[in-house]
Structure formats: structure tokens, C-alpha cells
Design a protein around this nucleic acid. Structure first.
Lengths: 345, 345
DNA sequence: CCGCATGGTTACAACGTTGTACAGTGTGAG
DNA sequence: CTCACACTGTACAACGTTGTAACCATGCGG
């Protein structure tokens, strides 16, 4: 596997620079020379050493993607989309998991492990406005999906507030009045939990419904398990509700499970809507109504934005914030009002 | 960001090699010198250029992981485990998706994109025994999970045959006699579909049950959708069965969905068991009985095996095949025989 | 027939790091 | 007092690639 330009050059009887020129489609090469070199390349099975090329050029053709955990369906699907988009741009993706731990997230930003890559797509969960300086890293960085900072960085995000409001309004439009919410992070303002809660409250307010602490189920983790637990707690303390807005789909699935165990029918007794539109949502029983936050678009746009940053190197330009369109996906767990099924919202 | 050894050396008033020595814990350095250098490093915020180091040393500290699609829960969870295991070994993971396309899988093995990595963890779906030469690549390679070749390569795999047999026997032990199977790849012998079908047939045979073509649901894809479709087809052609062995969990979930739509109760009318033990399986309604194929162990072992191969370079040693322990996970969709819940099989 | 542009190729340096060889400076033993 | 040797540090080359500058033909206009 140690075939280098030298070997090819020796076999073809030219200098190594000429071989390099052939490989890089340098125009002024005599056809005969080109053929000789190409034959030598084929014969030896030469492939360029990307590490060396990368050292020389300062570009590796790799980007890093940092997500909390690939075990979470949303991030797995996001990663799948990012990798596909990156491949289409000739980039390769190095995946890191932060476990949503703020300390690890901060550490990651400074980690030399990234030095092999040209830039970072970062989906932070734990960082706060306080960490904004930590984002002033010396390499191209694009923040993904969940959180809005005033930092000096590009963002490609979903419309958390508006989408959460639309989800809640969908429940209201179908006649529900006592709408519980689960997955709340108490005191948080800036993260997706805070933003989605704001959307929820805006919807209530716009329709003259009171915000009732009794209907709020806090939960830091957004797993099925925590969704089930949160729902059981609400039920146990005798909260009365006819709908649930879950801050993501896995919470919603856990909640549905708990509701079923408690003998509540979905959607007859309690309508449930989630957020994320993970693949699974369309196959559960009942299928899950949810928000499609535009994952594909986010992935493509984020890769493109990062690629552009990499392209024009340090040469700044204002940081941009790009917002994905969202969509209310109506399924069985929270059907439309008069039994009518809506497609888009 | 262009802080190099030179800059540090200049500031500290030593040669760049001395700085390098400090960084690499070379023993013979005067404490005073070490302090000077460390201060300079801190002051400039120097971090080593991994690309250069990698070129010099021939090691990048990165491995590649190739899976069909991160959108598939099993592979997402596998990737999560692999990345975690790799991190524990100080390795970073580059993730590729092959889409289970044989041509892309072959191409990937030769791709120079991997040249940046020290080795490859490969979970092939499409390759066959014919492609065995393609596996004689010039770099460390470990095959993952699904398939058994006689190739010159390390394998870390699950016990497809034995586990599928155990799954089927679990259904038989609970009194089922007409057991359908879905996800079959007709004519396949060597892939996981072929192996799991073999386990299924062995179980039937061992208990004097006939193999009935009418109970076999072929399906190339192993998605929820294909599971649902497969099940609907079986129902449509009037097949009679009291249990289903689905070749993976997502197929099983799709099948459960189709059964429910058709008014069959799970597990009362039809017991369902899957394969993979994806996280989701424990939260569905009803929760899904399945095979836990030892994903965590596979990930850890595969990373360790690859790391070892990388460690001792070309210095071969026999290719090894490592088999993970499996476990029958009994849940609601296929409870144990007399209403008794078993824990381990 | 000279000078000059242009095509085709080459030598050299450089990207940032580390291994090898070596050069000082002490220190302790003979 | 000298020699061996360990300690501390340096210069240089090398990993494989590509940019820069320069070289040697050739051909053409003057």
C-alpha cells in the first residue's frame, strides 16, 4: 500500500511533479506523456495519500458533526441526512457524540481531535448564552437545529417557537381545551425546550386559554422513558387534560404508552402531538401527529453553509441565521377537528 | 490558528524539536525547559497539527465505519456504540453510508476517501461470497455483525442461526404452531436473512413442524413499511398463522401495525417476535419480544479487534471470527408459555 | 538569425511534525 | 586527570504532496 508518486514517476520515466500534474488535470501535458503516466498509475494501483495532500493544501475534505447521541432517533436521522448531503459535496463526515453534556460540548469545541477536519457542524444541547465566547473558535463552525445564540456564528435552525405554537393550535383547533405539555426544562429560555414552551404558551394565550402549571410535565431527558414517566406523574397527581403536546416524538411515544397503560384512549380521551417527525412516528399505533421541522433541508443547508465558509476561508462575512420551514403532520394520535384530515399547515 | 511548533519554539527560545519532545513526554528534559515550553504553549494556545503528525507517523487516529443507513435504528444504535467504544480507545470515527448497495460497498472498499483512516469497520449487506477478493484490501478491516465469509478478514458477528432458532423456539414453547416468517430474501444463503431463515427452519424441524411456503413473507428491505406490506400480503392471501418471526424489529413493528389494522390482536391472536432489540422495542404497544444480539459487545469487540490489527500493522496473524452472545428478550408481543415471564433464554 | 513567447517538463521548497544522529555539558569512576 | 556515560538539547532529513520558478525546446515575427 506504499505506492507513492515516486514509484509511479519511476515507472513512467518522468518526474513526480509530472505525475502530480496528470492527476490534477494540469492542462499542458503532452498526450503521450499523459498516457504513459496513466498506465503506470493503473499498473501500480496508485491512489493519492490524502493525508499528505491535506497537509500540503490545508484542506482535508472532512467535516465533523457533533450531536448529543446517535441513539436518539432525531439525531440519527439528522446524521444520515448530513452524511448524504456531505457526500454529494465530496465531503466525508466524522461523527462525535457529546451526550448533551455542557462540559463535553465546550471541550469538543477546543478539541484537537477536530484538527483533522475543515469545519464543524455542531448541534449543542447543553451550551448556554454564557458559552458564547467558546463559540469564537478559529475554524468554520455552523450551529444546527436547536438553539439560538447571539454568537458570531452561522445558525441553521428550525422554527421552534412558531412550530410549537402551530402544534398546540392544531390541538386547540380540534376542540381540545386542557392541553398538557411534557419535556419542559424549568427556567430555560434559550434552548429548544424553552422556545417550544414559549410557542405553547403563545398558542394558549392567542386562544384565551389559561396557562396551568398543573398541566406542565418537566423532564430533562427527552427519551421514551422520560415521556412515560412524565405522563404517569401527571396522571398520578390527578391532572385533567384532553391533549398532550410532547416536546419531541420520543417523549410522545413514551407518553402514549403510559396513557394506554392507564386506560386512556388516544386520541379519543387524549390527543397527542409530538415534534420532529421521526420515521417511526408514522408506524406507531396510533400513528403520531407531529411537527416536521424540515430535517432534510436543515442538513443540506447546513452542509452547504459550512462548505461555503470553508471555501472562502477566514474571509468572514456576516454570520447568518437560516430558518427551515416546518409542517404540521396530522395523523391518528391527534386528528383534525371534524374528523377531517389536513395535509399541511 | 496557524500556531506551529516554530512559533512556540521561538517564544520559548528553544528548538522546535525540544517543543516536540515536551509534547511527547520525552523523558530527558530539564524541568526549567519544560516549564518554559509549557508556558509558551499555553500562551499561544498551540495545538498540534494532527494532519502533519499523521503524515509523519502513518497513523491518523481515525477509523471508518461503514453501515447501510443511519436511518435504520439498529445501525444508528450500533454506530452510537462504536463511536463510544472508539472514543474510549482514543479513536475518532468517520461514518459512511452504503445504502446496502453492493456496487457502492465494493467501491467503498477501494475508495481513497478511506485513506485518511487507519482501518475500516464494515457492515456489509449486499456483498456476497463472490466479492471475497474485494475484501483483500491493503488496510486493517473488520467485518461487522451480519454476514459470514470465508474471506481473509476478521469478523465480529452475531449468532444469526442460533438466535433465530431460539426466537422461533420461544414461539413454539408458548404453544404456537403456525409460525409465519417475514423479511426472507429468497435464494440467499449467506446473508443474515439466509442465516436467520435457517435458524427458523431448524427450530421447526426440531419440533416436528412442517416448513410451509404459505407462511413465508419475502421482503428485501427491512423497514417498518416492508414489514407492514409483507404482513398485509400474508393476510390477503389467507394464510393462517398464530405467530410471526420477523427478521428484525422494524419489520416486526410494521407487521404489528398491519395486524392491528386487520383486527388481529397481538399477542392473543398472533404472537410477534423480532430481532435486534432496538431501544424502541420496549416502548411500543404491545412491547416487542425480540432477540438481543449483543450489539454493545459487538461494537466494543470490533473496535478492539480493529485497534489491535492497526497496532501490529501488516503483521497478519490468522483472521478471527468472534461471536457475540445473544438473549431472548421476552415482552408482551410474545409472552412466555403459561403466562410466565422468562428473563433470559 | 536573433529574440521572445509558449508548451512541456523539471528541481526545489514547503506544509508541520517526529526519528536519527550527533554535539555539548556535567558527573563519577578509574 | 581522563574517560565513559548519562543528560539535555540541536540540526537535519523525511513522511507524500503541490506551488513556484526555472529550464529547455520549438516556432514564429521581425
Amino acid at each position: 500500500m506504499a505506492v507513492t508518486l515516486h514509484d509511479v514517476a519511476a515507472l513512467a520515466g518522468v518526474s513526480i511533479k509530472t505525475v502530480s500534474n496528470v492527476i490534477n488535470d494540469y492542462p499542458h501535458i503532452r498526450p503521450a506523456t499523459r498516457v504513459k503516466v496513466e498506465q503506470a498509475i493503473a499498473e501500480l494501483g496508485y491512489t493519492p495519500n490524502l493525508t499528505a495532500r491535506s497537509l500540503r493544501s490545508g484542506r482535508s475534505g472532512a467535516i465533523a458533526l457533533a450531536v448529543p447521541d446517535l441513539g436518539l432517533a432525531y439525531f440519527a436521522e439528522l446524521a444520515a441526512s448530513v452524511i448524504a448531503a456531505a457526500e454529494a459535496s465530496g465531503l466525508v463526515v466524522l461523527v462525535e457524540q457529546t451526550g448533551a453534556d455542557p462540559a463535553r460540548e465546550r471541550e469538543l469545541l477546543r478539541s484537537p481531535r477536530l484538527k483533522m477536519t475543515d469545519g464543524l457542524l455542531f448541534s449543542p444541547l447543553g451550551l448556554g448564552q454564557d458559552d458564547v465566547d467558546a463559540l469564537d473558535v478559529g475554524y468554520p463552525l455552523v450551529l444546527l437545529g436547536e438553539r439560538i445564540f447571539d454568537g458570531p456564528v452561522d445558525h441553521v435552525t428550525m422554527q421552534n417557537v412558531a412550530a410549537a405554537r402551530a402544534a398546540t393550535e392544531h390541538l386547540i383547533a380540534s376542540g381540545r381545551r386542557r392541553i398538557a405539555v411534557i419535556g419542559v426544562h424549568e427556567g430555560e429560555v434559550i434552548g429548544s425546550a424553552g422556545l417550544r414552551l414559549r410557542g405553547y404558551r403563545e398558542a394558549l394565550e392567542a386562544h384565551g386559554l389559561a396557562y396551568d402549571e398543573a398541566l406542565v410535565g418537566p423532564s430533562i431527558a427527552w427519551h421514551r422513558e422520560s415521556g412515560a414517566r412524565s405522563m404517569r406523574e401527571l396522571l398520578a397527581r390527578g391532572a385533567e387534560f384532553d391533549a398532550v403536546f410532547a416536546m419531541n416524538d420520543t417523549l410522545a411515544l413514551g407518553a402514549m404508552r403510559a396513557l394506554l397503560e392507564a386506560g386512556r384512549r388516544v386520541p379519543d380521551d387524549v390527543a397527542v402531538i409530538g415534534f420532529d417527525n421521526i420515521d417511526e412516528a408514522q408506524y406507531t399505533v396510533p400513528s403520531l401527529s407531529t411537527i416536521d421541522p424540515g430535517r432534510e433541508w436543515i442538513a443540506r443547508t447546513a452542509v452547504a453553509t459550512l462548505a461555503e465558509r470553508i471555501e472562502r476561508d477566514g474571509d468572514a462575512g456576516q454570520p447568518r441565521t437560516l430558518l427551515a420551514d416546518f409542517e404540521v403532520v396530522v395523523r391518528e394520535s391527534a386528528p383534525a377537528g371534524g374528523g377531517v384530515r389536513a395535509g399541511r399547515a
